[in-house]
Amino acid sequence: MTEYKLVVVGAGGVGKSALTIQLIQNHFVDEYDPTIEDSYRKQVVIDGETCLLDILDTAGQEEYSAMRDQYMRTGEGFLCVFAINNTKSFEDIHHYREQIKRVKDSEDVPMVLVGNKCDLPSRTVDTKQAQDLARSYGIPFIETSAKTRQGVDDAFYTLVREIRKHKEKMSKDGKKKKKKSKTKCVIM
Protein backbone atom coordinates (compact mmCIF):
# COMPACT_ATOMS: atom_id res chain seq x y z
CA MET A 1 0.00 0.00 0.00
CA THR A 2 1.38 3.38 -1.01
CA GLU A 3 1.77 5.99 1.72
CA TYR A 4 1.43 9.69 0.95
CA LYS A 5 2.85 12.38 3.24
CA LEU A 6 0.53 15.37 3.00
CA VAL A 7 1.12 18.66 4.78
CA VAL A 8 -1.63 21.23 5.43
CA VAL A 9 -0.27 24.79 5.54
CA GLY A 10 -1.81 28.24 5.84
CA ALA A 11 -2.32 31.16 8.19
CA GLY A 12 -3.80 30.75 11.67
CA GLY A 13 -7.57 30.36 11.82
CA VAL A 14 -8.20 29.39 8.17
CA GLY A 15 -9.55 25.94 9.10
CA LYS A 16 -6.61 23.61 8.49
CA SER A 17 -7.45 21.44 11.51
CA ALA A 18 -11.19 21.55 10.78
CA LEU A 19 -10.56 20.30 7.21
CA THR A 20 -8.25 17.53 8.41
CA ILE A 21 -10.58 16.37 11.20
CA GLN A 22 -13.54 16.46 8.81
CA LEU A 23 -11.63 14.14 6.44
CA ILE A 24 -10.39 11.79 9.18
CA GLN A 25 -13.31 11.70 11.63
CA ASN A 26 -16.26 13.01 9.60
CA HIS A 27 -17.16 15.76 12.01
CA PHE A 28 -16.81 19.53 12.23
CA VAL A 29 -14.87 21.16 15.04
CA ASP A 30 -16.14 24.70 15.44
CA GLU A 31 -14.12 25.88 18.45
CA TYR A 32 -10.75 27.40 17.58
CA ASP A 33 -7.82 25.80 19.35
CA PRO A 34 -4.53 26.86 17.73
CA THR A 35 -2.51 23.85 16.58
CA ILE A 36 1.18 23.40 17.23
CA GLU A 37 1.43 20.24 15.15
CA ASP A 38 -0.86 17.22 14.81
CA SER A 39 -0.46 14.10 12.72
CA TYR A 40 -3.29 11.94 11.37
CA ARG A 41 -3.41 8.74 9.33
CA LYS A 42 -6.25 7.39 7.24
CA GLN A 43 -6.56 4.55 4.75
CA VAL A 44 -8.58 5.50 1.67
CA VAL A 45 -9.18 4.27 -1.86
CA ILE A 46 -8.36 6.83 -4.56
CA ASP A 47 -8.93 5.86 -8.20
CA GLY A 48 -9.05 2.18 -7.25
CA GLU A 49 -5.76 2.27 -5.32
CA THR A 50 -5.79 1.70 -1.56
CA CYS A 51 -3.43 4.16 0.05
CA LEU A 52 -2.48 5.49 3.44
CA LEU A 53 -2.65 9.23 3.95
CA ASP A 54 -0.20 10.53 6.53
CA ILE A 55 -1.43 14.07 7.15
CA LEU A 56 0.48 16.70 9.08
CA ASP A 57 -1.71 19.53 10.34
CA THR A 58 0.59 22.46 11.01
CA ALA A 59 0.68 25.64 13.08
CA GLY A 60 -0.43 28.77 11.26
CA GLN A 61 0.71 31.10 14.02
CA GLU A 62 3.86 33.03 13.22
CA GLU A 63 5.54 32.06 16.52
CA TYR A 64 5.83 28.48 15.22
CA SER A 65 7.30 29.42 11.85
CA ALA A 66 10.72 27.99 12.80
CA MET A 67 9.18 24.50 12.71
CA ARG A 68 8.05 24.90 9.08
CA ASP A 69 11.30 23.98 7.34
CA GLN A 70 11.36 20.62 9.11
CA TYR A 71 7.87 19.48 8.09
CA MET A 72 8.26 20.94 4.61
CA ARG A 73 11.33 18.74 4.09
CA THR A 74 9.36 15.55 4.83
CA GLY A 75 6.12 16.41 3.00
CA GLU A 76 5.45 15.04 -0.49
CA GLY A 77 2.52 17.35 -1.21
CA PHE A 78 0.99 20.46 0.30
CA LEU A 79 -2.55 21.77 0.76
CA CYS A 80 -2.13 25.56 0.81
CA VAL A 81 -5.21 26.76 2.68
CA PHE A 82 -6.68 30.24 2.96
CA ALA A 83 -10.09 31.39 4.22
CA ILE A 84 -12.35 33.00 1.61
CA ASN A 85 -13.34 35.60 4.23
CA ASN A 86 -9.74 36.57 5.07
CA THR A 87 -7.79 38.44 2.38
CA LYS A 88 -4.56 38.42 4.43
CA SER A 89 -4.62 34.60 4.57
CA PHE A 90 -4.94 34.57 0.76
CA GLU A 91 -1.99 36.96 0.39
CA ASP A 92 0.06 34.76 2.77
CA ILE A 93 -0.21 31.80 0.36
CA HIS A 94 2.60 33.27 -1.75
CA HIS A 95 4.97 33.16 1.24
CA TYR A 96 4.08 29.55 2.08
CA ARG A 97 4.59 28.50 -1.53
CA GLU A 98 7.96 30.26 -1.78
CA GLN A 99 9.12 28.68 1.48
CA ILE A 100 8.06 25.20 0.29
CA LYS A 101 9.92 25.66 -3.01
CA ARG A 102 13.03 26.90 -1.17
CA VAL A 103 13.05 24.05 1.37
CA LYS A 104 12.34 21.40 -1.29
CA ASP A 105 14.86 23.10 -3.62
CA SER A 106 12.42 22.66 -6.50
CA GLU A 107 10.04 24.71 -8.62
CA ASP A 108 7.89 21.62 -9.12
CA VAL A 109 6.30 20.55 -5.82
CA PRO A 110 2.81 18.96 -5.70
CA MET A 111 0.38 21.52 -4.23
CA VAL A 112 -3.32 22.30 -4.19
CA LEU A 113 -4.70 25.76 -3.42
CA VAL A 114 -7.68 25.47 -1.06
CA GLY A 115 -10.20 28.24 -0.36
CA ASN A 116 -11.90 27.17 2.86
CA LYS A 117 -15.07 28.44 4.58
CA CYS A 118 -17.02 28.71 1.30
CA ASP A 119 -20.23 28.23 3.34
CA LEU A 120 -19.81 31.75 4.78
CA PRO A 121 -21.61 34.68 3.11
CA SER A 122 -18.88 37.20 4.02
CA ARG A 123 -16.49 36.46 1.14
CA THR A 124 -13.55 38.86 0.64
CA VAL A 125 -11.54 36.68 -1.77
CA ASP A 126 -13.25 36.25 -5.12
CA THR A 127 -13.28 32.75 -6.65
CA LYS A 128 -11.77 34.16 -9.85
CA GLN A 129 -8.86 35.70 -7.90
CA ALA A 130 -8.06 32.30 -6.40
CA GLN A 131 -8.46 30.51 -9.75
CA ASP A 132 -6.11 33.02 -11.37
CA LEU A 133 -3.51 32.54 -8.64
CA ALA A 134 -3.71 28.74 -8.91
CA ARG A 135 -3.42 28.96 -12.70
CA SER A 136 -0.33 31.18 -12.41
CA TYR A 137 1.21 28.57 -10.06
CA GLY A 138 0.13 25.69 -12.32
CA ILE A 139 -1.76 23.97 -9.49
CA PRO A 140 -5.41 22.96 -8.91
CA PHE A 141 -7.79 25.16 -6.89
CA ILE A 142 -10.64 23.76 -4.80
CA GLU A 143 -13.15 25.57 -2.62
CA THR A 144 -14.07 23.76 0.57
CA SER A 145 -16.21 24.02 3.65
CA ALA A 146 -15.03 22.02 6.64
CA LYS A 147 -18.46 22.75 8.15
CA THR A 148 -20.60 21.27 5.35
CA ARG A 149 -17.84 18.89 4.11
CA GLN A 150 -18.07 20.39 0.60
CA GLY A 151 -14.88 19.71 -1.35
CA VAL A 152 -13.01 18.16 1.60
CA ASP A 153 -12.37 14.73 0.06
CA ASP A 154 -11.76 16.37 -3.31
CA ALA A 155 -9.00 18.62 -1.90
CA PHE A 156 -7.03 15.80 -0.28
CA TYR A 157 -7.62 13.32 -3.12
CA THR A 158 -6.60 15.89 -5.74
CA LEU A 159 -3.35 16.39 -3.84
CA VAL A 160 -2.69 12.63 -3.92
CA ARG A 161 -3.28 12.68 -7.68
CA GLU A 162 -0.83 15.58 -8.02
CA ILE A 163 1.79 13.60 -6.07
CA ARG A 164 1.21 10.57 -8.32
CA LYS A 165 1.65 12.72 -11.45
CA HIS A 166 4.82 14.20 -9.99
CA LYS A 167 6.28 10.77 -9.14
CA GLU A 168 5.42 9.49 -12.61
CA LYS A 169 7.09 12.49 -14.22
CA MET A 170 10.18 12.10 -12.03
CA SER A 171 10.53 8.41 -12.86
CA LYS A 172 10.20 9.16 -16.60
CA ASP A 173 12.85 11.86 -16.28
CA GLY A 174 15.04 9.41 -14.37
CA LYS A 175 14.68 6.77 -17.11
CA LYS A 176 15.61 9.32 -19.78
CA LYS A 177 18.75 10.24 -17.85
CA LYS A 178 19.67 6.58 -17.37
CA LYS A 179 19.25 5.89 -21.10
CA LYS A 180 21.51 8.81 -21.94
CA SER A 181 24.19 7.67 -19.52
CA LYS A 182 24.40 4.23 -21.18
CA THR A 183 25.98 5.73 -24.30
CA LYS A 184 29.62 4.72 -24.36
CA CYS A 185 32.59 6.34 -25.93
CA VAL A 186 35.21 4.09 -27.53
CA ILE A 187 38.68 5.48 -28.12
CA MET A 188 40.86 3.55 -30.60
Rank of each mutant, 00 (worst) to 15 (best):
T2Q: 09
T2I: 04
T2E: 12
E3Y: 03
E3R: 03
K5W: 06
K5I: 00
L6D: 03
V7A: 05
V7D: 01
V7E: 02
V9H: 13
V9A: 04
G10H: 04
G10K: 14
A11N: 05
A11V: 08
G12M: 02
G12P: 05
G13L: 05
V14A: 09
V14F: 10
V14I: 05
G15I: 01
G15Q: 01
G15N: 01
K16F: 01
S17F: 00
A18S: 14
L19H: 14
L19C: 11
L19E: 14
T20M: 04
T20S: 05
T20R: 00
I21S: 04
I21G: 05
I21A: 05
Q22I: 01
Q22C: 04
Q22G: 14
L23Q: 14
L23R: 15
I24D: 00
I24S: 03
Q25A: 09
Q25L: 14
N26Y: 04
N26V: 02
N26F: 02
H27G: 10
H27C: 11
F28N: 00
F28W: 11
F28Q: 01
V29N: 02
V29Y: 11
Y32E: 00
Y32V: 03
P34A: 13
P34I: 15
T35Q: 15
T35E: 15
E37Q: 02
D38K: 00
D38Y: 02
D38F: 00
S39C: 12
Y40M: 14
Y40Q: 00
R41S: 00
R41M: 01
K42H: 03
Q43R: 12
Q43D: 03
V44C: 10
V45R: 11
V45F: 03
V45M: 11
I46L: 05
D47C: 03
D47T: 03
D47A: 04
D47G: 05
G48D: 07
G48N: 04
E49K: 09
E49M: 10
C51W: 08
C51D: 06
C51P: 06
L52R: 06
L52Q: 06
L53E: 03
L53A: 03
I55N: 15
L56P: 00
L56E: 11
L56S: 07
D57G: 00
T58D: 13
T58I: 03
T58P: 10
T58H: 04
T58F: 00
T58W: 06
A59F: 03
G60V: 15
Q61F: 05
Q61N: 03
Q61S: 02
E62M: 04
Y64S: 07
Y64A: 09
Y64H: 13
Y64C: 06
S65Y: 12
S65T: 11
A66T: 13
M67P: 02
R68L: 02
R68Q: 03
D69M: 05
D69Q: 12
Y71T: 14
T74C: 07
T74R: 06
T74F: 04
F78S: 02
L79F: 08
C80Q: 02
C80D: 02
C80S: 02
C80P: 01
V81W: 01
F82H: 08
F82T: 11
A83Y: 13
A83G: 14
I84G: 15
I84F: 13
N85S: 04
N86P: 09
N86L: 01
K88Y: 05
K88H: 07
F90N: 14
D92S: 13
D92Y: 04
I93S: 02
I93G: 02
H94M: 14
H94P: 05
Y96S: 04
R97Q: 08
E98A: 04
E98L: 01
E98Q: 05
Q99E: 14
Q99A: 12
I100W: 07
V103K: 14
K104T: 15
K104F: 13
S106Q: 12
S106V: 10
D108H: 07
D108Y: 05
V109F: 13
P110F: 02
P110T: 04
M111C: 07
M111Y: 02
M111N: 00
V112W: 04
V114F: 15
V114L: 12
G115K: 02
G115L: 08
G115P: 03
N116G: 06
N116R: 00
K117Q: 13
C118P: 10
D119N: 15
D119C: 13
D119H: 14
P121T: 12
P121E: 13
P121R: 08
S122P: 07
S122G: 12
R123M: 12
T124H: 09
T124S: 11
T124K: 09
V125H: 12
V125L: 07
D126R: 05
D126T: 08
T127N: 09
K128F: 06
K128R: 06
Q129R: 07
Q129K: 13
Q129V: 08
Q131N: 12
L133M: 05
A134D: 03
R135E: 08
R135K: 12
R135D: 14
R135H: 09
R135F: 06
S136V: 07
Y137G: 06
F141A: 06
F141G: 02
I142Q: 06
I142T: 03
A146S: 11
A146F: 04
R149M: 10
R149Y: 11
G151Y: 08
G151A: 07
G151E: 04
D153F: 08
D153A: 10
D154S: 07
Y157R: 13
L159P: 02
L159D: 04
V160F: 08
V160M: 09
E162K: 11
E162I: 11
R164Q: 13
K165A: 11
K165E: 09
H166T: 12
K167N: 06
K169E: 08
K169G: 11
M170V: 13
M170L: 06
K172S: 12
K172D: 10
D173I: 07
D173R: 12
G174R: 09
K175W: 11
K176R: 04
K176M: 12
K177D: 08
K177F: 09
K178L: 05
K179Q: 04
K180W: 11
K180Y: 04
K180R: 09
S181Q: 14
S181W: 05
T183L: 08
K184W: 01
C185Q: 12
C185M: 15
V186A: 09
V186P: 12
I187H: 07
I187S: 08
I187M: 07
